[in-house]
């Protein structure tokens, strides 16, 4: 399995799902006013957008595992671990 098309599709899917959520949420805000549902949909869209690059790294880890590419599995795992570390550190120090 070629990694490029898979990664491209993961990114594309994340983008269009988050766009759909954000457009729906913003549209709802304008039409019906900001209520908890519209704000929730908007928040979910932004959260999905922010999560997409991380999901991309996770997807690469699976692909490298399928390819039995040990070096890149390690590289990708380190990236994920440091990301998790940064996030935890940022969340507790804030």
């Amino acid at each position: 399995m070629k990694p490029e098309p898979v990664i491209s599709n993961v990114l594309c899917l994340g983008v269009w799902m988050s766009v759909a959520l954000m457009v729906t949420g913003s549209g709802w805000c304008f039409i019906a006013g900001a209520d908890s549902l519209s704000v929730g949909v908007l928040t979910a869209g932004l959260a999905l957008l922010i999560a997409t690059p991380v999901l991309r790294v996770a997807a690469s880890l699976v692909l490298f595992w399928l390819e039995r590419d040990r070096i890149y599995m390690l590289i990708t795992a380190v990236v994920l671990a440091v990301l998790a570390g940064s996030f935890i550190l940022g969340a507790i120090s804030g």
Partner: peptide, 20 residues
Amino acid sequence: IGVTAAAGAAVYFMRGDVRL
């Protein structure tokens, strides 16, 4: 750049600095 920014963005998001 998206990967580096994602961690920072997530932290800003959780702190409530991301104004919708």
